[in-house]
Design a protein around this nucleic acid. Sequence first.
RNA 1: GCCUCGGUAGUGCAGCGGCCUAGCACUGAGCCCUGUCGCGGCUUAAACCUGGGUUCAAAUCCCAGCCGAGGCG
Length: 373
Amino acid sequence: MASFRFRIKTTVEGLAARTGIISTPHGKILTPCFVPCATQAAVKGLTPAQAEDTGSQILMVNTYHTFLRPGIEVIRKFGGLHKFMGWNKPIMTDSGGFQVMSLGKQGQATVHDEHTIFHSGHNNLKHTFTPELSIQLQEVLGADITFAFDECTPLDFSRAQTEESLLRTHSWAERSLAAKTRKDQALYGIVQGGRFKELREKSAEFIAARKFQGFGIGSLFGEPKREFRDVLRWSMSGLPKDKPVHLLGIGAVEDLFTGVAAGVDTFDCVTPTRYGRLGYVLSSACGNKQKWRYRITKQGFKDDTKPLDKNCECTVCKMWSRAYIHHLFRANELLAYTLTSYHNIYFLHELMQNMRGAIECGTFSKLRKQWMG
RNA sequence: GCCUCGGUAGUGCAGCGGCCUAGCACUGAGCCCUGUCGCGGCUUAAACCUGGGUUCAAAUCCCAGCCGAGGCG
């Protein structure tokens, strides 16, 4: 079985942007690329075949969610996620760290230095999560790329709170590494540090010094765009260039350009599928140059015979009209979610493919300018 | 034909003399969501069946009509 490897193909003069190839036991990934979320071992609304058709090279599955349901023993019985969900390409698994924050905000998680206690909504059970458990679970899940258990620090945390949280993330990073037993899985360490320059740099330095095969950058959403750029730069400055970097939870068009320019190799984000369910269509021709999206549920599309995106080559855009998809949403037909999610994922993969092409042709800055103005 | 009950935003309900500038839920219109949210949040639009009467004051009480549901013939 092939082991994990990262090879840089092309770099861009004056920028950190690069193309590369991540090799994993389940195949290669051309970077930079977008990673759709399959949180509960499914890309919401799509079959694995459809996910592959959109251009997906790798999926992100969540450890905490699959631990709660169906439970790790079920997946163990199948020999891992790949066989369980019928996806033979690479998989990465989130460590459950994000849920420390997202559930914590709802009072469903309490963080301690040693562990985190989750109060499950499913059945009122309490679950104690530790870095060791997260790694153990991820090894059973069998992902090609795994993440250290971290604490996603809310951006409104004070300097003192952020520092305390960061110490925990670092301690958990070391414990995650120590708990690792499988050699065929890559383990990424995660850089945190909230919105503080010194803490981000300190975190990057700390994580870079450990034996991780790659790095994740955490907690970058919700920032004003200017800060986003800065925080990303601080987070990456101390990381070695020869290892892959994943930007966790980011997928807005502008952020993808910013990330790639800064040298990020992979991105995961829920927006294409979440937007798909909310009736938002990603489009390069929608007139909204901030968000690159519009709402198909609006009245105006009721009898619109045009495709979702006139510039898009995806199956949905070739086969169906805005009027039809508008109708599916109005009628609450499940196909609405499938078609819109399919298109949205295709849109992001297409964008990333264009970025890869542009980097290799030396026209990345031009492409970015075309999109961002 | 008689009797009973009911007619309040698009839908379903609340209000039953002044506290109604009429409340709620869904729906509509619009905005928002970045390691998931078929969710949730915010803004906004929209109604007292008709006509008489009683009263200082009627969505509210009375009469007639119209409409709907049920009962009796």
